[in-house]
Design a binder for these strands. Structure first.
Length: 273
DNA sequence: ATTATCAGACAAACCACCTG
DNA sequence: CAGGTGGTTTGTCTGATAAT
């Protein structure tokens, strides 16, 4: 495991710079001051402070609204083939909990203590202080990840004991699948085979539960990924269409224009700098 | 609760062509 | 040449309805 990059920011009123991205790295985002909304994998998350978000590789994320001053730091990690990091399902579950997370509680206090230690260590690194020790930072990151996983495991046990498993778990299964594999070829037949259900029943159940059909949900994910690529990379529209799972640039730009009113290229020009 | 079928509406995907 | 549009074919979604 390697730190690929880390940074800390405070947004003051009038801030108009970049506040998100997409990259093939695992990211930990720790919010220390202010409130905001995080867009991640097609959903919005209320971001209080303190709160901690785990962002899995290749997923676009963006802070869209914030109450100033808004402070946070993040670390992007090249985790190689380590499997100790939360899977997408766990990350989603964890991030959803952040809205109401109480970091003074017995369960979460150890995480906050570790994060505060990390904050201080990263501050040393930022200043080029000799006391900075990368090894200790790595241990703290591993400890944080481990604490998150333990906390999730404990919660899951209590949930499973308390409630009967929803008969509609397959919808969550499919949503998670699309969120992590939106760039792969996905069609209705593959989705219904995946959960062993009739496709017409699947569409009805999915819409009933989520308000959108499976393919609408998938396109929403793909377009929000495309937005991140447009703003944060130099990739051409053709490349972005491929990277987000669209089979053709033509269809991509048409869908894009339908949703945002302008073409991808125009959107990039309008949202740069 | 789930599957099946059918028809009609609508959206996605594709090809050919246009534009800057 | 990359990116955008028009028209056509193919796939998805929905409502109705019947059955397990």
């Amino acid at each position: 495991m390697q730190i690929r990059t880390f940074n800390h920011h405070t947004f003051h009123s009038g801030y108009k710079g970049k506040s998100g991205g997409i990259h093939p790295y695992f990211e930990i985002l720790y919010v220390t001051q202010g409130k905001a909304t995080l867009e991640w994998m097609g959903s919005e998350y209320e971001v209080p402070s303190p709160s901690l978000y785990v962002l899995t590789p290749n997923t676009p994320h963006r802070i869209v609204r914030f109450q100033t001053p808004f402070s946070f730091w993040y670390i992007e990690l090249d985790i190689g083939d380590e499997d100790a990091f939360p899977a997408s399902e766990q990350a989603i579950h964890w991030n959803r909990l952040q809205k109401e997370a109480d970091y003074e509680s017995d369960e979460l206090r150890p995480i906050k203590q570790t994060l505060d230690a990390l904050s201080m260590a990263l501050e040393l690194k930022h200043r080029g202080d000799k006391r900075y020790d990368e090894e200790i930072v790595m241990l703290d990151i591993r400890k944080t990840v481990r604490l998150i996983q333990n906390d999730l495991r404990n919660r899951l046990q209590t949930v499973n004991e308390a409630s009967d498993k929803s008969s509609r778990d397959f919808i969550q299964t499919l949503m998670r699948h699309m969120e992590t594999s939106y760039y792969e070829p996905i069609d209705l037949t593959r989705l219904s085979n995946r959960v062993h259900l009739n496709s017409s029943y699947l569409v009805r159940a999915f819409k009933h539960e989520t308000g959108v059909t499976p393919m609408q949900y998938l396109n929403k994910l793909r377009l929000s990924a495309a937005i991140s690529y447009l703003v944060n990379t130099e990739m051409g529209v053709q490349q972005i269409a491929e990277a987000t799972g669209f089979n053709s640039i033509h269809y991509f730009s048409r869908l894009f224009k339908r949703k945002y009113g302008i073409s991808p290229q125009q959107w990039r020009l309008a949202n740069r700098k």
